[in-house]
Amino acid sequence: MSTPLLSVRDLHVEIDTSRGLLKAIRGVSLDVNAGDSLGIVGESGSGKSITLKAILGLLPKNARVTSGEIHVDGVDLATLSEKARRALLSEKIGIVFQDAIAALNPVMRIGVQIAEVPHRRLGWSKEKSHARAIELMELVGIPEAEKRFSLYPHQLSGGLRQRVAIAIALSGNPQLIFCDEPTTALDVTIQAQVLRLLMELRVKERTGLVFVTHDLAVVNEICDEINVMYAGRFVESGSVANTFQRPSHPYTYSLLKSAPDVDHQSERLFSISGETADLTKPVTGCPFAPRCFATTQLCSENEPALLAQASSFSACHHASNFTEKIPAGHFSQGTQGKARS
């Protein structure tokens, strides 16, 4: 196997907040190859968006990477100058954010925004960049591309704007696209269109995807691999197929059971009690322990590492046997229920 396109090792990020120093990311590692589709799932405050921003060097002023290595195409970003690092990142990685209207320049025609990278960075001629922009607009499914080339972002609907954002992300021919909740603000029928577009791009262009979202169903639809994030760490990593059928972390299990599924109506949703861990305080033991149904003495003393289990990686002391402790009312509609469909 060749070197991965993106490799992150033991990334740590700290943020200065009014409540003190927040350890937002506490050791995240991941590898992405061409054509991979990797989902990062977590609730608000889990650190999923910060992870993307840290890799891209887009952290806000009050946040910084305190340790960890990031390799893009085998090159250690720490060894590069600011300028070279930016050049490498923008060459390899395209970004799509949740808020397309904020990501687009409101006073610049959309076609010109898409053609900007080919024209300025790749040094293409004006005509060639223009043609490329039209080609990209067609690729992302913007009808009547030639006519819409000279429109401004506010003249487009939400779905079309997000397509423009994707076209811009693709304009530098990246090998990887980072998506930060790209469909959260969209309506469900438009979300389906955008998700399908991303899936097609992955097949057609062999573009790798790193997809950050809070929506498990979206990950199920478009990702092959899933990383479940909690309190600044991955608590479970594995293939979507395995993880959804046999979660090996109680948090993953709880998340899966608390999210309603459009295919089923259950008696009662599983709910997780308590609040997420306060990362301005030092973490002792497993950060999920206070909310976990399978917690033991060991959990409050030792923070578990992400270790290989039967079907995935899990950071739980009881990865192999926590299912025995699932609260009684919930087992009936547990894993067997899902397997029926």
Partner: peptide, 13 residues
Amino acid sequence: LGSVPKMTPGSKL
């Protein structure tokens, strides 16, 4: 209904 992402493993939109 067809556009809603599903939790069923192997589902494709």
